[in-house]
Design a protein around this nucleic acid. Structure first.
Lengths: 245, 245
DNA sequence: TGTACATCAGTGAACGCGCGTTCACTGATGTAC
DNA sequence: TGTACATCAGTGAACGCGCGTTCACTGATGTAC
């Protein structure tokens, strides 16, 4: 519909190799970042890669990773099934791109919660650091409950800790979900709230607790829990982490 | 091959409606429970339902819930694809039966760990109660790491906490995984190690932490961790639960 | 005890489905002269 | 500025695959007489 801004440079900013944080085009559709004049307004389609990615994200949102079906994405965009192969080598490549978006959105959800506490610069001290840790956890749980399909997609693609710092998976601050957790724990160590010894490997402790609750709530036996109960469980799990660290 | 013992009563003991604990026929193949003489040695096949279930469990073991493919199960048993419909209403019914076996095996894995500590009768007191709680967690993690396919299958079928006490999902003691956790926490409350207030909802805390680590280790970003690291992470998560409860 | 019959576990063939992917193509776009 | 040409994004048709499921059947088993 609306042709996207697309000098090659700008175009690349919004494709797999370049973006940081959640691609605004996943929700908007107007031209972006007009620092350079677009050399042309459209390709044949306009910007099929991004359109397919957006369709893939919607599929993941509604049905998780298995719902990211290449033919359905092309159908939604109004294009022949094989057109996708101009932009993704195969279905797996599309799924991986969608997964990266999902991870970015997770990081953004965590940043949103953290913003309510303020940055360490704005709001220093031990108690604020603990509050930021709680915000990390609540953001994670909130995203899982509000976007279960994307949450599942974020963890669906083979990939290990080597990606934990991949800027492609980052939120608006340029940090990934893992980095947000990690730097908050660093801060707790710096304020002295956490001994050096206890700091080591603390990521796994916090992450396990919150990830487990998220999984049990959205896919597991706790899936029938109402939002208030889920919220209360989240608060208790997070408080267990605080005490147990 | 080997015809199974099968008076109607005995037969039902090993089918969906009747069994407790892990069906030994999932691993053995000889006749069982000979208290009654079999009225006949075989059906056409012998005992197709159980054979299909066993094949389904092997598929789940190797590839998780998605690998439980009805046609493949019949192929392995050496029977026409539609023969399965004499014993399962559809593929979902087979998957649910496999899921029940997986949950039983999880409970058994936990019982095995707990047996090393001894029952509350054999080994009473607060410290032993904590040791039993650690055993519950280690059994859970051990099963996830040794049988990731079955672990994923155990949590793959829609079903909520109303099944938490379903004898069909129980281990050898007749308790489900959830009941093993729950009664261990009860014991901690009785010895005074856990106040009434902290006892409430404690299942979710312990379960979340351990389930989260299991998920991250087998399907998630920690999947590359070597066994020793995984073991150490498990110990730390469990110790966090102890301190955080 | 022997025979006719009913049951129902398993067969054989076929169905429609939707998927991912490949092929040779076409025609709008951007570029070289 | 105008024309010929190369590029390559998207087309149209088709492929093979494996799945779950349905149908009318057959023939061994257990039962009624």
């Amino acid at each position: 519909m609306v042709p996207a801004a697309s000098s090659k440079r700008v175009h690349e900013l919004w494709t797999r190799e370049g973006h940081t944080g959640v691609d605004p085009a996943m929700t908007d559709s107007g031209p972006r970042l007009g620092e350079r004049l677009p050399r042309r307004e459209t390709y044949r389609h306009g910007d099929l890669r991004r359109a397919l990615l957006r369709a893939g994200v919607e599929l993941a949102r509604d049905g998780g990773p298995d719902a990211v079906v290449l033919r359905e994405a092309t159908r939604r965009v109004g294009v022949a099934p094989n057109a996708a192969y101009r932009h993704f080598t195969d279905r797996q490549a599309l799924l991986e791109a969608v997964c990266a978006v999902a991870q970015s959105e997770l990081a953004v959800a965590m940043e949103d919660q953290m913003a309510q506490v303020g940055t360490p610069g704005e709001n220093p001290g031990e108690e604020a650091a603990w509050a930021r840790l709680r915000a990390v956890g609540h953001g994670y749980l909130r995203f899982a409950r509000l976007e279960p399909g994307l949450f599942r997609t974020a963890f669906s693609v083979p990939g290990d800790m080597s990606l934990a710092r991949d800027p492609e998976l980052a939120g608006q601050s340029g940090n990934t979900a893992f980095q947000l957790l990690s730097s908050t724990l660093d801060e707790l160590a710096e304020t002295g709230a956490l001994s050096r010894e206890r700091r080591v490997g603390a990521e796994v402790l916090a992450w396990s607790a919150v990830h487990g609750l998220a999984t049990l709530l959205i896919d597991g036996p706790l899936r029938e829990a109402d939002p208030d109960t889920a919220e209360a469980m989240g608060a208790r799990v997070i408080s267990m982490v605080e005490q147990g660290l």
